[in-house]
């Protein structure tokens, strides 16, 4: 009898002290899943525009309800992270020697993502206050 290797791959994934690449991947994957589910919702809500004005306006709370803002912001962050981190992966995939700078690149991604997210969240807050 041997201990089952598959037992707890989630705990392996969370407990492994991998570098920035490890955490980037977890975030990239979670972000991607989140965005994909939102995308399905988003297509549905825009589809309502085609159904009728009233049907769409039923759903406008998604964009107007202040309590949902944190969700939107999380999504905004997720999209920026997934996009920029994706660009990092593309750069590395096609110019493999860039792998040597993976830590610097991953850090750059974080800097850009934070700047973009702070900017948009700031814009939203300003809009809400106005």
């Amino acid at each position: 009898m041997s201990a089952n290797p598959k037992k707890g791959f989630v705990s392996s994934t969370l407990s492994y002290k991998g570098g920035i690449g490890h955490w980037s991947w977890i975030l990239h994957r979670l972000g991607g899943l989140g965005i994909a589910f939102f995308l399905i919702l988003h297509i549905l809500d825009i589809f309502m525009v085609g159904v009728s004005r009233a049907a769409f306006e039923e759903l406008l709370f998604i964009y107007h309800e202040p309590l949902l803002r944190p969700v939107i912001w999380a999504l905004v962050f997720g999209v920026f992270y997934h996009a920029l981190n994706g660009l990092r992966i593309i750069i590395q995939d096609f110019w493999p020697h860039m792998f040597r700078y993976q830590k610097q690149l991953a850090t750059t991604v974080w800097v850009i993502v934070i700047v973009l997210t702070v900017f948009l969240v700031g814009v939203d807050i300003a809009g809400m206050l106005a």
């Binding site: 107007h64 905004v76 999209v79 920026f80 900017f119 814009v123 809009g127």
Partner: peptide, 18 residues
């Protein structure tokens, strides 16, 4: 990224309607 900036900054979330 362009879409997000357009909807949040140029349009503004609170202004989105039919």
């Amino acid at each position: 990224v362009f879409h997000l900036i357009w909807m949040h900054y140029v349009i503004g979330l609170t202004n989105i309607d039919f």
